[in-house]
Computed example of a mutant assay.
Amino acid sequence: MRRYTDSDIAAVYRVIEERRDMRHFLSGGLDPALLGRLLRAAHLGPSVGFMQPWRFIRITDQELRQSVYRLVDEERRLTAVALGERQDDFMRLKVEGVLECGELLVAALMDRREAHVFGRRTMPEMDLASVACAIQNLWLAARAEGVGMGWVSLFDPAQLGQLLALPLGARPVAVLCLGHVGEFYSEPMLQQQKWAERQPLETMVFENRWRNDEEGSPSG
């Protein structure tokens, strides 16, 4: 079957549209079988040269979770200072759910990536793009399963790597909070909080060459 049924296609588009970066979680962990399905979805992600550069570290030690939280909170405060006049607005946002979520994962780039040249000779950053694809798979599968997920990037990679004993050359990419939620946000939380809005698609689709803003719409 080349084409899925209309209902299956609608479900794919629905889960994409309703995916949310969640920060509020209910107590309680995830069923191991469910977590296994989500991780398998991530592992089915595409990767350049089939290098599969993702590694997932499941944080089950509560003291270690507290240490991860402290790193995130430290960077949250430094980010607030760097934002200048938006500092107070930022500090009012809930930007992580590290302590509340049922499962805490760290997604990392593997070490010895320089051995993988296929697709990376001129674009070595494609290893990071591959990990991002795996994370997106995990995110969409979680949403389909009714599980909330939040991607946290507020941390110093060197400090988190040292905390988790990453080998030389490996690098943490994301702290992923997963867990059951009371409800999913009706729209992206940062949009709800008036931090930013989704930009119109037509301003981001060009034809044949880069279009500067002053050149008008694609049809213009």
Rank of each mutant, 00 (worst) to 15 (best):
A80M: 02
F155G: 08
C133T: 12
T79P: 03
Q192V: 07
I57E: 10
V147L: 00
E197L: 07
Q193P: 02
E96V: 00
D88T: 13
G169Q: 04
F184W: 02
R77Y: 03
P167A: 09
A196W: 01
E202Y: 08
D156E: 14
R37A: 06
M149G: 07
P53F: 08
M204W: 04
V48L: 06
R120A: 12
D127S: 15
F25Q: 04
V175I: 15
Y13N: 00
N208R: 15
R20G: 05
P218K: 07
S186A: 12
L168P: 13
G150F: 03
G182S: 04
G216E: 07
P46M: 14
V68M: 11
T60W: 03
M91G: 06
L93G: 03
L166A: 11
R65P: 10
R211G: 08
P53C: 12
W210G: 03
N212H: 14
C177K: 07
V95S: 14
A115E: 14
L128Y: 05
L109A: 14
A41C: 09
V175D: 05
V152H: 08
F118K: 15
R3H: 07
V95F: 01
P172F: 01
Q66R: 15
V12H: 05
L154P: 02
Q162L: 09
V106Q: 10
A108P: 08
Q159C: 09
T203C: 08
Q159F: 02
Y185H: 15
R171G: 04
G45L: 10
T122I: 09
H24I: 04
Q52V: 07
E207A: 08
E215W: 11
V98W: 01
F206K: 10
C101F: 01
L154H: 08
G45I: 12
H180Y: 11
S47K: 11
L201P: 02
F184T: 05
V147N: 03
W54H: 13
D8P: 00
F56I: 12
N137F: 03
R20T: 03
R198P: 13
L201W: 07
R20F: 03
V48I: 10
P167Y: 13
L160S: 09
P188C: 09
F56V: 12
R211Y: 12
Q192F: 01
D61I: 06
V131A: 14
R14P: 00
L190A: 10
T79C: 12
L64A: 15
E125Q: 14
T203V: 06
L164M: 13
A42L: 12
I57W: 09
E63S: 14
Q136P: 05
Y69N: 10
M204D: 11
L128I: 13
A196R: 03
T122Y: 13
G45H: 11
C101G: 06
M189E: 15
A11C: 01
D8R: 10
S219E: 14
D111F: 08
Q199T: 09
G220Y: 01
L178Q: 09
R37F: 00
A165S: 15
